[in-house]
């Protein structure tokens, strides 16, 4: 890494850069390298047998599936919520807008036990759904519900600023020129906000993959049925099987890196397309 500074009269570059690099090395780089070190030690066959064992495979399927589904629902409802918050004045809008960030601020274990209490068969919402034959707590649906909660702010807060920047006069102009509202939406609004909705989706999806605290209470944690990948990592660590834990983690880690890379490419592509 060539951290050569261009000439500047400001002092302190060496000190600030030294602290930054040293801290990141000790706290992030060295610890992260242990994952790759550990996996390299275990050999391909061992690695493969761990990540393809039925229990781990099922956990991956559940983690990826539930995160994907929750991110889709967050994208749709989060977009509508962002729309309502930017385009309407309504009673309670200020409070709803502020509470969007709650999943960032609320500890995940608190979210977990609370959602479980609400969606259990005798809970506030669970008791309404139970007569319909819908069980949420201790099923896969519960995992999706927890991940929807966690993902809400990612979509709303990515879409909201873009909607705010979007000039309403543009839409009015389109309508004055005879475009129907549906056509205005499809031709004027949609192209401008699709990248931000996709970014929000990807952020929510990535967060869902790694989420632990809010899920483990509501999921019931039945092997092969409602066990998520991060829980399996914890279980392997508790049994001091560091290698198995590392193998399971590596797949999750690489998946989130790929998603993040996709977000970066998406944002670069958007910047190039719109900053003419």
């Amino acid at each position: 890494m060539a951290l050569k500074q261009n000439r500047s009269i400001l002092p302190g570059f060496g000190l600030a850069m030294g602290i930054t690099v040293a801290y990141l090395s000790v706290l992030v780089l060295i610890p992260l390298s242990t994952i790759f070190l550990n996996t390299a030690h275990m050999g391909w066959h061992h690695f493969w047998s761990v990540v393809t064992s039925p229990r781990v495979e099922a956990a991956y399927r559940i983690s990826f599936g539930a995160s994907f589904l929750a991110a889709i629902i967050d994208s749709m409802l989060g977009f509508i919520a962002a729309w309502a918050l930017t385009r309407y004045r309504f009673i309670g809008a200020g409070i709803l807008d502020a509470i969007v960030d709650l999943p960032f601020a609320l500890p995940t274990s608190v979210a977990g036990i609370t959602l479980t209490a609400i969606f259990a068969n005798n809970g506030l919402i669970g008791s309404l759904l139970a007569p319909l034959g819908i069980r949420v707590a201790f099923t896969r649906l519960g995992i999706v519900v927890a991940l929807i909660f966690v993902g809400v702010p990612f979509v709303v807060r990515t879409v909201q600023p873009v909607l705010q920047e979007l000039d309403p006069e543009l839409e009015e102009a389109a309508e004055t020129l005879g475009a129907t509202r549906a056509r205005t939406f499809a031709r004027v609004i949609l192209p401008a906000i699709v990248p931000s909705v996709l970014t929000g989706f990807a952020l929510a999806f990535a967060r869902g993959l790694g989420e632990y605290g809010s899920v483990i209470f509501i999921s019931g944690n039945m092997p092969l049925r409602t066990e998520i990948a991060p829980l399996l990592i914890v279980i392997e660590l508790e049994q001091f099987d560091y290698r198995a834990a590392t193998a399971i983690a590596l797949v999750v880690l690489l998946a989130s890196f790929v998603i993040l890379l996709a977000i970066n490419l998406l944002q670069r592509w958007t910047a190039r397309t719109y900053a003419l």
């Binding site: 994952i35 790694g210 632990y212 991060p230 990592i233 999750v252």
Partner: peptide
């Protein structure tokens, strides 16, 4: 990084 992996 998933918090669980961070701890790991």
């Amino acid at each position: 990084v998933s918090p669980v992996i961070g701890g790991m």
